[in-house]
Design a protein around this nucleic acid. Structure first.
Lengths: 235, 235
DNA sequence: CGTAACCTTGATTAAGATCAATTCTCGTGG
DNA sequence: CCACGAGAATTGATCTTAATCAAGGTTACG
């Protein structure tokens, strides 16, 4: 068995050693480098993933090639869980696919994969994991709800402002306050795709906010000069 | 205690009488008529709802008053479950709100409401309900994923086509085949809002598809004349 | 230091929102 | 049973936002 700690994955953090080992027995470790596809939304479902190292982007792609980044997953999180629970009680096993595409964003991206069968057995027995899964689904549902709201009920300036304000407030709570700068964790291409727009438009909006002395953009570093004004755009 | 059958709600369909009674003890029956708000996304969270009669629309609204219909819920379904599971393991009870607004669409809309505390106790004990909830969350997550994909990666014609094709195929599987007509269950205003557009634009797109002899629109009845062409738009 | 990936900028176009005015539909009361 | 009126839907003219197309410029990294 390959050596890694399953308990680093939040979903499994409360397991005892015996339980963890019985899952590890069936799971496999996979490594991906930057830009590699972990799965496509067209392929048949084979199992759930947990991240040990690196960032994974979950995204959709149109037939013309336009991308939409739905969210990013970080170490400790699982992804590709949705099909595991669809038709859970169905007797006939319907062909399932992944709901979206997954791509590794870091050169050292390490994931565990747990196949359907053993995971199904595990979750049916383990109430704690069930509740954790519910909690993670709930948070994701709210995230998607908010995301839909942003996409449909505001223009690009508003969407970018909301994104920056949210990221900044997330940072504030963990970091020391006072520093009014923000490091974009993703490429501007990915950011545009998350905001439901394209590169060029994002660039123009950044420039507009810069001209209005609300932001200072230095590469992937964003200095927030006028936070109240930014919040106003996010309203 | 008011008389109603809790087992009509899918989530509770497997409960025995004792279990059902212990939940009913804490729950209350509420009636709404057409257009009445059940909750706003701004109000503090107080509990989960189950539908006994009528249709409920879950939607977001911008500060300018533009609406976005996220989904419809029918008898047997629950709604407003998300906040129940957020911060499930948190010790400090954070102020929670509903993730979206809910409105009754029928004059006779009857719902059961179960407060946070008793429901929390119930779900912690009941593994079957946990798995059902997971399954319902999973389906909703896929729905929202697809919805985001549609909103961001296609124009209104495509979105309407996808909607019609999906509804039509849903109908086919339950109804007798051959009848190429579809009854819109919602107002065109609500449909427009669900498709991320407005009344006027939807109207024009309907007309375009009619001019191309793909559809025949008679009020809320849509005859599908050229299904393959419609599917092509939905691609 | 060279090249590829990333980002910015400008000019143009297209999709759809907004504004404004009818028309249609249907439920209600006379 | 018809007439009325309100809400729903349609249509047209115009305007706005953001996508597309087309060059350049910057940055990062071997």
């Amino acid at each position: 068995m390959i050596n890694f700690d399953l308990k680093n994955i939040f979903l499994f953090s409360n397991l005892n050693d015996t339980e963890a080992d019985s899952i590890k027995e069936f799971s496999s470790l996979k490594r991906y480098s930057k830009g590699e596809i972990i799965f496509f939304d067209t392929e048949p479902y084979t199992g759930i993933y947990g991240i040990l190292e690196g960032v994974v982007k979950i995204f959709k792609i149109s037939k013309e090639g336009r991308e939409h980044l739905i969210h990013l997953e970080h170490p400790g999180s699982t992804f590709g869980e949705v099909p595991m629970f669809e038709n859970f009680s169905a007797i006939i096993e319907k062909e399932r696919t992944y709901p979206a595409n997954a791509m590794a964003l870091d050169t050292e991206t390490v994931v565990v994969k747990i196949p359907v069968k053993p995971f199904t057995e595990f979750i049916k027995q383990n109430n704690d994991a069930c509740l954790k899964m519910l909690s993670s689904f709930a948070r994701r549902l709210r995230f998607l709800n908010t995301h839909i709201e942003n996409l449909t009920l505001g223009d690009v300036t508003k969407r970018l402002s909301i994104y920056l304000v949210t990221e900044y407030e997330k940072k504030l709570s963990s970091d020391c306050p006072g520093i009014r700068s923000l490091e974009l964790g993703i490429s501007k291409y990915d950011l545009a795709s998350h905001l439901g727009t394209i590169n060029e438009t994002l660039s123009r909006v950044f420039k507009k906010l810069q001209n209005e002395s609300i932001l200072e953009v230095r590469g992937k570093t964003i200095d927030i000069i006028n936070f109240p004004a930014l919040k106003k755009y996010a309203k």
